[in-house]
Amino acid sequence: MRDFLLLLADNTQILGHRLGEWCGHGPELEIDMAMTNLALDLIGQSRNYYQYAAELEGAGRTEDDLAYLRDAREFRNCLLVEQPNGDFAHTVARNFLFDSWHYFFLQALCQSNDERLAAIAGKSLKEVTYHLRWSSEWVIRLGDGTEESHSRIQDAFDNLWTFRGELLTPAPFETEAASAGYGVDLHAIRPLVEDRLSDILAQATLQRPEDGWMQSGGKTGRHSEHLGYILAEMQYVQRAYPNSVW
């Protein structure tokens, strides 16, 4: 259960962190605010999972201990969410790949036999329904916008496609979670995710990249180099001044 909760917590925390990097630098004020809203939703979700994980541990640790005092090898998030923002097209493509998985994942998680998890999923699903709508619309706008935007978003999907497989490939702790009834059967949601992807990419007049070799490892703590830098920044104050209250 702990690993499963940390997967959900770290996914949302790291993607929220990445979106937070946009704050003040968006393509237009309104879009800047929209991305901050996404970040706030995601970080809020991660706090729910961290708090639950900390309680289950029963060792007196807090959400912040889990977020700020674990090292990269202990993080369970997928490689996709730690990928750099790149240009706006990369951010949109990354979010869309995540959202289109996250949405169906949460729908299934609402049926979890763990009441607390089901409740968190229910609350998150409302937010993520909006996230998916936001990223889908931007994929379509950029894909079916100008020549430049089309090539940028196509390029982004081509680059990020290799990270999408991990979302739908269960780590051992996810298989265990699914069979124990508190997790999600990734095989069951796969067709829903695939359909949505194909549908939106088609509307966006984009080429669906080939499903070639897929990267994996994030869920078991073997990350890309990017996560180390994220944590170096994120955890710096906590690490530089240990045992302090902030």
Binding site: G20, C23, G24, T36, I43, R47, D64, Y68, V237, W246
Partner: peptide, 24 residues
Amino acid sequence: GNWITRAPSLRRKVALLAKIQDEA
């Protein structure tokens, strides 16, 4: 915005983000 990614707790991080968003 310079400190969003270094905010030392999740509570501080969401507060800071929300505040900067308000400024936008």
